[in-house]
Design a protein around this nucleic acid. Structure first.
Lengths: 130, 130
DNA sequence: GTTATTAGTTGTAGGGTGCAAGCAAATGAT
DNA sequence: ATCATTTGCTTGCACCCTACAACTAATAAC
């Protein structure tokens, strides 16, 4: 089981953390850092540093939260979407190469199971975006 | 997809790396460090450090390779097996908790797919134990 | 208005990882 | 046999990810 993880990590060299942040932002609209950290199952401080890095690269932007001066709302930029799309494309290519011998049915089944497992694990520990 | 990985990493706090080494050793008998590194898709140097740590904890032992004085052959100790078994039990408990609502068929199917994917990824990059 | 709580950042420390340099044993060329 | 090369492994170094603790700024509670 851990094998899959290790091999995927080895195959996906590019920015492991950044992509998680961008992915979450891409499908959730303006969010606070704390919510993001929660969704990623990471510490707020860690998430804060990632966001700062992405901000420097202009893949993410922050705006003051109109309802709370302490908080900031994050959103992905157009460049961020592009970057994410490229990263996903690269990963997909690897997966497609690995699963070249699979038939359509098995692929969708695996996908389905993984999504379900991710949801169940999220429920187990209570991490989700609000 | 990365979600599963992140959440599993969060749920399995204990010794991420050590367990990989022990697992490989448990199912492969005496191996060289280089072969182990290859199987784990890790750098030899990284693997070397892990082995040293496990050796200190007496979970792994090394003996000189009779056929090559430079190499060492690693094997898991009884304590190592016990440690691994405990770790696997802990992980299994988490997974069972997460998949409490799954029926038997789906579980075995997921297992099957993951094993297949791991194999295919290994083939893609050529990492296996000899 | 003073105190407590909350959102985020920064300091610090610990691990994992890979690359490059080094060391010792083995192999190959002469 | 001798010396150069290759091979297996370890160590030095630098970088990233991560969490916890201490801190600042802003809000909420009283």
């Amino acid at each position: 089981m851990g094998r899959v993880g290790r091999q995927l990590r080895a195959a996906f060299k590019s920015d492991p953390a950044a992509i998680g942040v961008l992915y979450q932002l891409s499908r959730s609209g303006p969010v606070r850092i704390s919510a993001l950290a929660n969704a990623l199952a990471l510490d707020v401080s860690t998430t804060s540093r990632h966001v700062r890095g992405l901000e420097t690269d202009e893949l993410v932007e922050r705006q003051a939260d109109p309802e709370d001066g302490r908080a900031t709302l994050l959103h992905i930029t157009e460049a961020g979407r592009q970057f994410l799309a490229d990263a996903i494309a690269e990963r997909s290519a690897v997966l497609r190469a690995a699963t070249a011998g699979w038939d359509e049915h098995d692929l969708t089944a695996l996908n389905h199971y993984l999504a379900r497992l991710a949801d169940d694990l999220a429920n187990l520990t209570g991490e989700t975006l609000a």
